[in-house]
Amino acid sequence: MPVVEKQRSDVILQYLRPKKKFPSVWCPGCGNGIVMGALIRAIDKLGYKRDEVCCVSGIGCTSRMPVYLDFNSLHTAHGRALAFATGVKFAQPNMKVIVITGDGDALAIGGNHFIHACRRNIDITTILINNFIYGMTGGQGSPTTPAGAFSTTTPYGNVEKQFDPCGLAQAAGASFVGRSTVFHTPQMEKMIMAALEHKGFSLVEVIANCHTYYGRLNKQGDPVAMVNSFKENAVMLGKAQTMTPDQLKGKYVIGTLHENKEATEFCDEYQKVVDVRMAGGKAR
């Protein structure tokens, strides 16, 4: 993997679609833009050809990201990004397929596709930007809204429990699982690079701020306060292992949480079948 240690900050500008209007649709200070920057720098450092990258997304604030990026882009229906991405990757196994999704998109309406993509261990990198709420529709509770937290559909506090996307992915068979936050941008960037280079299904969960809805409804109204709260509440994996569940309450364990380089990848395994059948192997 070619690693360029230092790079110009203007590299991002080279990867923005020339015919798309900027600034983006996102609110001032939205974490989505921070992740987008890190993703671009990661791809640039890895030296991928733009024609060999395909960004797939569903519906939501986060899912607007691929439209701005000068790669092949597929902006699909709510929750279905991973299913579309499976079709793209399986049809063109040499394509670097990146799914950009949010907590509602990936874990509620798209929950089934999420676990099955993990199970297949298909070589797709999923960047799940977790802001604990539905932003585009105006601040409704999502599968990652913490218990007790307020949203426009949990006006008296959330009575449901939240998903742990990383735990879910690992249990379902994903072979690379990591978590970072928009505060820890250099770490996030390195983690995205590692995920892109990983063969198999990789998940990078990025804790991000939706101060407009989640912050305002939960007394953390501005982007600075929210981003700083990620700094305070993030715990590196190594340290987290020495902490009790009570101590970890409300904390985000960050770092590469799971990596299995031995797991077989779906497209590779299918190609083996194709090679045998094309050579005239007899069907059982």
Binding site: R80, A83, A85, V88, H116, R277
Partner: peptide
């Protein structure tokens, strides 16, 4: 597989048509 094509059994019908469009 005999002709180098690809078959996938998806997790439901929604995923099936999604994969079909992605492949197309």
């Amino acid at each position: 597989p005999k002709i180098g094509g690809r078959f996938i059994q998806m997790e439901d019908e929604i995923a099936s048509i999604a994969a079909v469009i992605g492949a197309s």
